[in-house]
Amino acid sequence: MIDFGSVDLAPLRERLAARAAEEELLDVAYRVIDSPVGRLLLAATPAGLVRIAFEREDFDVVLDDLARRVGPRVLRGTDRLDDVERELAEYFAGQRRAFDLPLDTRLSTGFRRAVQAHLPSIPYGHTESYTEVATATGSPRAVRAVGTACATNPLPVVVPCHRVLRSDGSLGGYLGGLEAKRTLLELERRAA
């Protein structure tokens, strides 16, 4: 009898994920990485990066949501996320100011998508207020909706909702927690 507790299943999992990707049988590939803001779950579809999640969001809940909203064929592994991991490592090292990744934005619609499309135009090391973002997206009275769009951003860090602050300069909220937001802002301030 095989003791599966002592068998390293990682190579098998990697081969399975690679074969599924080759045969276009994989809806979502994911991996978990360490970062200065804690462990992050990265998930991509064939169209591009679809989700980045902070550990406090509960990775199992995030993966269940992706299976429900994107497709049930979700596997850990594949090289689909190599560029994402590399660009995030460069960003956290202060060597990258903008991301050059294909994004799958299907998890956001309407005004939320419009806000999230604006966020990468906020320069590295700078911030805008919720009011400024609302104005920039053509809805100057939709300040609270901007906050909701930032709070539901499926691609934090890459789509930099951490650069949006309250009008008084205070942090506001952040999906990854205020300490993560402070860390990202400080990282950009030092490297700018």
Rank of each mutant, 00 (worst) to 15 (best):
residue 120 P to H: 05
residue 112 R to S: 12
residue 169 G to C: 09
residue 119 L to Y: 01
residue 118 H to M: 11
residue 117 A to D: 15
residue 112 R to W: 03
residue 171 L to D: 01
residue 166 R to Y: 02
residue 181 K to D: 14
residue 137 T to I: 12
residue 128 E to T: 05
residue 127 T to R: 01
residue 110 G to I: 01
residue 136 A to M: 08
residue 176 G to E: 03
residue 117 A to M: 11
residue 141 R to A: 13
residue 109 T to M: 05
residue 115 V to R: 00
residue 154 P to W: 00
residue 150 C to T: 09
residue 143 V to E: 02
residue 151 A to K: 00
residue 155 L to C: 07
residue 111 F to T: 04
residue 177 G to N: 09
residue 158 V to F: 00
residue 177 G to K: 08
residue 173 G to P: 10
residue 133 V to D: 11
residue 162 H to V: 00
residue 179 E to D: 15
residue 118 H to I: 04
residue 139 S to V: 00
residue 133 V to G: 13
residue 182 R to G: 09
residue 183 T to A: 09
residue 169 G to R: 08
residue 152 T to V: 08
residue 181 K to T: 12
residue 117 A to K: 14
residue 134 A to K: 11
residue 177 G to H: 04
residue 125 G to I: 07
residue 135 T to R: 15
residue 114 A to K: 11
residue 172 G to D: 10
residue 109 T to L: 06
residue 139 S to G: 03
residue 134 A to L: 13
residue 125 G to H: 01
residue 151 A to I: 01
residue 148 T to R: 13
residue 140 P to F: 03
residue 112 R to Y: 06
residue 116 Q to T: 05
residue 114 A to D: 14
residue 128 E to I: 06
residue 132 E to Y: 01
residue 131 T to M: 00
residue 136 A to C: 04
residue 110 G to V: 04
residue 126 H to Y: 05
residue 174 Y to G: 10
residue 115 V to Q: 07
residue 112 R to H: 15
residue 165 L to M: 02
residue 107 L to P: 01
residue 173 G to Q: 14
residue 142 A to S: 15
residue 164 V to D: 05
residue 183 T to V: 01
residue 136 A to E: 07
residue 152 T to P: 02
residue 147 G to S: 13
residue 113 R to W: 00
residue 158 V to L: 06
residue 136 A to D: 09
residue 181 K to S: 12
residue 169 G to A: 07
residue 109 T to Y: 00
residue 125 G to R: 08
residue 177 G to R: 04
residue 171 L to H: 07
residue 114 A to N: 00
residue 143 V to F: 06
residue 155 L to Y: 06
residue 144 R to E: 13
residue 171 L to R: 03
residue 142 A to W: 10
residue 129 S to I: 06
residue 175 L to S: 15
residue 145 A to Q: 14
